[in-house]
Computed example of a mutant assay.
Amino acid sequence: MKIGYARVSTEDQTTDPQIDALRGRGCETIYQEHRSGKNTDRPELESCLQALRTGETLPIWCVS
């Protein structure tokens, strides 16, 4: 199973492009949150990492 994680920093941003890309990569479950990069407390990321099992894949979507 592929699990995805999407995050944006501000409320005026949307995770939609990330969600589309992750679904396109076959992610069945996608965790998402709106959190500033300054905030290291990311409960959805923690949940995502805890959900991963041996052999599962976590695709990463990066924009520079």
Rank of each mutant, 00 (worst) to 15 (best):
E46M: 04
P43H: 03
Q13R: 06
R25K: 14
P43F: 01
N39I: 09
I3R: 01
H34N: 13
D12F: 09
C62K: 08
K2M: 10
L58A: 12
L22P: 06
E11R: 07
G55I: 05
T14R: 09
D12S: 13
I30S: 03
S64G: 09
E33A: 12
C62H: 01
T10G: 03
E56W: 09
L52V: 00
G4R: 00
L49Y: 04
D41S: 12
E56C: 13
S36M: 04
Y5E: 01
E11S: 14
C48I: 06
R35P: 09
A6M: 04
E46Q: 13
V8E: 03
L45G: 02
C62M: 02
A6E: 00
C48L: 07
L22F: 11
S9G: 13
Q13W: 07
A21V: 08
R53E: 15
Q32N: 12
T15S: 08
L58Q: 08
R7K: 09
H34Q: 10
T57K: 04
Q50C: 12
L45W: 08
R42Y: 00
I3D: 03
R25D: 11
L58I: 10
G37V: 07
M1D: 11
Q50V: 09
E11D: 11
Q18V: 08
G26P: 00
D12L: 10
I30L: 09
T40N: 13
E33V: 12
T15E: 00
P59C: 12
L49I: 12
G37C: 06
Y5R: 00
A21E: 05
E28I: 12
L49T: 06
T14D: 10
G55E: 02
I30C: 01
L45I: 10
A21N: 01
R23E: 07
V8P: 04
T57R: 09
L49S: 06
L45V: 06
P59F: 13
R35M: 15
S64A: 13
G37L: 05
Y5Q: 01
D41G: 13
I3K: 10
R25W: 11
A6N: 06
N39Q: 09
S47I: 05
T14E: 08
K38Q: 11
E56I: 05
E33F: 11
